[in-house]
Amino acid sequence: MSSPAIQAKRPALGWTVHDALIIARATIVASFRIPEALFFQLIQPVIFVLLFAYVFGGAIPIPGAEPGSAADASLYRQYLMPGIFGQTVAFAAAASTVGLAEAMQRGIIDRYRALPMSQPAVLLGNTLANALRQILVLTVLSITGFIVGWRINDGILNAIYAYLLLLLFAYTVTWVGAFVGLSVPNTETANTAGLIWIFPLTFLSNAFVPITSLPGWLQWFAAFNPISSLVQATRELFGNPTGAPTDFWTLNNAALYTVISCVVVIAIFAPLAVRKYRTAASK
């Protein structure tokens, strides 16, 4: 049996990027082949916008407007949208959890692991794809927000920073999601385990209510919750209302704290996920 020509040697890192892009491409192509799943992935944050904007609208007072007034409701929508953005990108983690748990159950991970490819590339590609998919989600969300009265008030450059910060956060949580997906015993568990930690994390934050409305100890948790700083930073960058100022360093240096958190979380969870991947056994 003659062996086929193997491509010219590349540095190991070059192959890692090459392999990760192949996996990312396949993951993205696959997600467009399931239009129903894509539709529900897009419709969910839209429903959140409508629910919060019209149900909670006037009930949550934002400093700067007469409570219950039309101005207050409009202000809340300005306040709300970065919260929804933050919550939505946090849910990017669930896609990695479910995707990898499924790949493992179907034996595809076994096949990857028996290939002479870069081993971290499967996770790099999967997390990258799930983060990139958020571009589409954020676009749909931004349009929905615009319709209900949300505006970008602080220039296009700051808005781009805000979106980039959101994507960095999405990429970060996909690593946590990847770790969870490789740790759960089956896809059924992945469906719940993938979501269960995201819900409290997004609600115990300033995403939907001002942090000052929380009881004391929860204020501390919420202040150090990177979702709060992410939402705070995007509010500032979009020029949306931020609620009453607080004494927390994390919220007064929101963008910086968010970036630091992302770096720390990736530094912890990426190696953990890669280790899990190397020893992962098919179920």
């Binding site: 086929p4 193997i6 997600s31 082949r33 179907r106 034996g107 595809i108 096949r111 290939l115 490819m117």
Partner: peptide, 25 residues
């Protein structure tokens, strides 16, 4: 393996192209 370990959302040809790529061919 015991399961048909292919990406079910990719076509047959895309699957082969993907695995060929990952083989660095």
């Amino acid at each position: 393996g015991q399961y048909a370990a292919v990406d079910e959302f990719l076509t047959g040809r895309e699957n082969l192209a993907m695995f060929g790529g990952l083989f660095h061919l």
